[in-house]
Design a protein around this nucleic acid. Structure first.
Lengths: 171, 171
DNA sequence: CACAATTAAGTTGTGCACAATCAAATGGCC
DNA sequence: GGCCATTTGATTGTGCACAACTTAATTGTG
C-alpha cells in the first residue's frame, strides 16, 4: 500500500499549514513525552531516596506488594520489561534485602520473586508517595484519569505500529 | 504550610473512593507515561535504524538542523540534558561524522557543536520520520496538540515541585 | 524414547540519564 | 593586579533499557 501520511480520523485533508505544523509537532509530542517522563523520574528520585528505591525498583515492588509472589516472567509482563532489565534490577533488590529469588520446583526454568518481610515493611515507608506525586502533578483525579487513558491509547497504537510495522514500511 | 494532599482544582473534597483510586492512579499515571515513552522509543528505534541515529541523537540533530550551530550548553537547554549525557553522545555523533566540536575562541570554556555536511545530509534521510511517527500514533493533529499541552503542563508542575520541593516535604 | 522447537533466565555489550566531582576559564570586586 | 565565585565541559560511577546471544529445562512430535 502507498503512503497516507496521516490518516486523519476526522476525514479532513490536512492543509499545508497543518503539515508544516506536524513536522514540528512530531518533535514536540515525542519530546514532550520524553521530558515528562524524565520530570517524573526527578520527582520520584527525590521521594524515593529516603525509601531506598529507584523508580523502576519501586514499580517492581508495587507489583509484588499487589500480587505477593510472582515469577520473573510475570513481573516483566506487568511492567513491560525483559529479563535483560529485570535480572540485574532484581539482584539489586535482593542484595538490598527486599526480595528473594528462588528457582521454581515445578519448573526449573522459572524463578519466583517474593518480597521479604523487609520488602513488605517498605510499603509503609512508601505509603505517602502516591499522594505526594499526585500533589506534585497539580492535576486533579479526572485529569489524571483522562491523561492516563490517552497515554495508554497512544502506547497501544505505537506498540501495534512497531510490531506489525505497517505504518513504518517504506513510503 | 501543612499538607493538602491533593488540592482539588474543582474545590471538591475527594471522597474515600477517590483516594483509594488515587493510590492506584498514581501508579498508573507514572507507569502509563513511562510505558508510552518507551513505546515511542521502540518506534523511533525502528525508524531511525536506517538513518543511523538513536532517538536522543536524533533529538540533538533536530536542534542542530534548526539552529545550525550551538554551544553544548545551549543544546542541553533545548533538550534538558546535562553535559554528563551530552558529552559522550556528542562524541559518538562526532565519531560518526555528523557533527564537529570546537572550542570557542572567544570563550575557551565553551565548545561549539556544528553539523557537518554529512550531518546536514542526514536531514534528507530523516525527512519522512515525522510523518511516519504521526501515522504510528494514530492521533490526529488536534489530539497531538492537546496531549502535548497537557504533558508540558505536567512537566512544568513536576519540575517546579522537584525544584522547590514544597509539595515534597514531610507531610 | 529421541530429537527439534520452544520457553525462561541470565549474560554481554551499547547507549542514555543523572549525581557528584573536577579542572579550566572567565568575570566581578576590592 | 590578585582573589574568589561562577560558568562550562569533562569524567566517573550507578542504574535503567534493550538487542543479541547463551544455557538449561520443558514440550511437542514422530
Amino acid at each position: 500500500m502507498t503512503s497516507t501520511p496521516i490518516p486523519a480520523p476526522g476525514g479532513r485533508e490536512p492543509g499545508l499549514a497543518d503539515l508544516a505544523d506536524l513536522l514540528h509537532l512530531d518533535q514536540q509530542i515525542c519530546f514532550s513525552l520524553h521530558a515528562a517522563s524524565r520530570a517524573f523520574g526527578g520527582v520520584y528520585r527525590v521521594l524515593l531516596k529516603d525509601v531506598g528505591l529507584t523508580y523502576p525498583q519501586y514499580l517492581v515492588m508495587l507489583v509484588l506488594w499487589e500480587h505477593g509472589e510472582l515469577p520473573v516472567k510475570k513481573v516483566g509482563e506487568h511492567l513491560r520489561l525483559d529479563s535483560g532489565t529485570l535480572s540485574p534490577l532484581l539482584k539489586r533488590l535482593e542484595a538490598a534485602g527486599y526480595v528473594r529469588r528462588e528457582r521454581s520446583a515445578a519448573d526449573e526454568r522459572s524463578v519466583t520473586v517474593r518480597p521479604t518481610e523487609e520488602g513488605l515493611a517498605l510499603r509503609e515507608r512508601a505509603r505517602e508517595v502516591p499522594l505526594r506525586i499526585g500533589a506534585a502533578t497539580g492535576f486533579d483525579l479526572d485529569e489524571i484519569r483522562d491523561l492516563r487513558a490517552r497515554l495508554d491509547r497512544l502506547t497501544r497504537a505505537l506498540d501495534r505500529a512497531a510490531r506489525d510495522g505497517a505504518a513504518l514500511g517504506p513510503v
